[in-house]
Amino acid sequence: MNFDREFFNLGYLDRLSYKDTIIHNIDARVKVIGAIAYIIAVLSFPKYAVIPLIPFFSFQIFSIIIGEIPISFIIKRIFVVSPFILFIAIFNPFFDRNTAFYLFNIPISYGILSFFSILIKFVLTVSIIIILISTTSFSGLCYAMRCFKVPEIFVNQLLFMYRYIFVLAEEAMRMVRAKELRSFNKKGLELKFYVKLAGNLLIRSLNRAERIYYAMLSRGYNGNMPYNKRKKLGFPDLLFILIILIMIYFFRFLEPVNSMGRFILRLIR
């Protein structure tokens, strides 16, 4: 069932993010900036760019090896979210049929090029997010947001939400299981049962919010959420972001790949 899979994923990613590797120990702020710069660089390529995108996979390869992230997990995740993008991208070859070049006498259209360009951009951006989240704890990310001046209320309730997703998802799972046990072979949840189930869960959640508020009050809550002091960026963090930004710049604007390939080809000849 869909539910179990999503729930499992959430817990799995969460656990990955608490590993102890070089990448995990880099400051969250630095990783967030790196990821955003990476995504913008990838998406700023012209719509027919395919080959110049490929070097960008090096970030993934590097983090997967160093950050100890199972590659199968990333691939599965990409497949799960791919339908929408495929649905949109598949139209490009049909609407854009001008021939770009001939590959062994087979005409390759611009639509096909842009189709592959979208797919590669998709894989690159999705996987970099998975890598970011599986090497950075959620509270680390929220800490980074706070440093980037994201409004306090947003960050605070984001932390609350993340904390209780696990609790409520488990509660929901128990309710779904109990329902499934009693509904025998019927597939899926009927709308009216769903409404009751969700309504029940909502009541329980609001009751829980009440109890949490009570717990907060009894520990002196006065409307402000305390949070950690700001840490200074260390040398490894600065080195990391410097390398990342230089690499992104290099791959985006200098296309070193072409010249390197030309050089090797010349050597071979």
Partner: peptide, 14 residues
Amino acid sequence: IPIMGILGAFVFAA
């Protein structure tokens, strides 16, 4: 704040 957080988690679970 706690109510918002919990409701977020609720919608997520739902």
